[in-house]
């Protein structure tokens, strides 16, 4: 019963924050609304009987990824006109098409995969015997051990690849670690637009 009340209180907040996130003109506002949305998703995990995923959702998305998002948006500043310009030809129509495709795909996946077609969901109190964390560990380290390890290797490779691409390469020497007086001679990066909520930042 309490689950239902929580769900019906949180669900409108979730949808409203998602819609507002898309409609918000300001990139920082969008990011903040996305954090609200992630929180409501976390609460959904909680009322579905998976406290572990609840915490993972908070620590990974709200705590780490969104902080990095905000960090980058605030550090670089986003020009509002720039972010609204469409760069890909026919972006709008493509987005609509792909969006519709996604909806169909998710609906199919829910119907076939999770098994609304084969009667209700499995009993969570039985699945979670001995605790939710233990249940997850049982599945992850027994049935899905190999995919789990492969995924972790994939993530490490991706992280190292991103680092390699992110490095500035000018000649053979590493310019980032060069002494300061050498760097002073180079032309600096483009001046960034002033960060801050209002345009009238001094």
């Amino acid at each position: 019963m309490a689950d239902w009340i929580v769900f019906w209180v949180i669900a409108p907040v979730s949808i409203a924050s998602a819609v507002a996130m898309i409609l918000a003109k300001n990139a920082v506002h969008s990011a903040l609304l996305l954090i609200v949305n992630f929180f409501t998703l976390a609460v959904f995990f909680l009322i579905l009987g998976s406290p572990f995923l609840f915490v993972v959702q908070i620590i990974v998305y709200a705590g780490a990824i969104m902080v990095l998002f905000l960090f980058v948006i605030m550090l670089l500043g986003v020009d509002e006109r720039e972010s609204l310009r469409e760069r890909i030809l026919g972006q709008r129509w493509l987005a609509l098409l792909l969006g519709a495709g996604l909806v169909v795909e998710v609906a199919l996946a829910v119907r076939v995969g999770v098994g609304f077609g084969h009667g209700g969901l499995p009993d969570f109190t039985r699945v979670n015997r001995g605790g939710n964390v233990q249940a997850l560990a049982r599945v992850l380290f027994n049935s899905y051990f190999f995919p789990f390890e492969v995924t972790s290797i994939l993530l490490i490779v991706a992280a190292i690849g991103a680092m390699l691409h992110g490095r500035r390469r000018i000649g053979d020497e590493e310019t980032i670690d060069a002494p300061i007086d050498e760097r002073m001679d180079e032309p600096g990066p483009e001046p960034v637009p002033a960060a801050g909520p209002a345009e009238a930042t001094p």
Partner: peptide
């Protein structure tokens, strides 16, 4: 785990 996750929020 909950405690560590929640403390990460204040930075936002």
């Amino acid at each position: 785990f909950y405690v560590l996750a929640i403390t990460a929020i204040s930075v936002i």
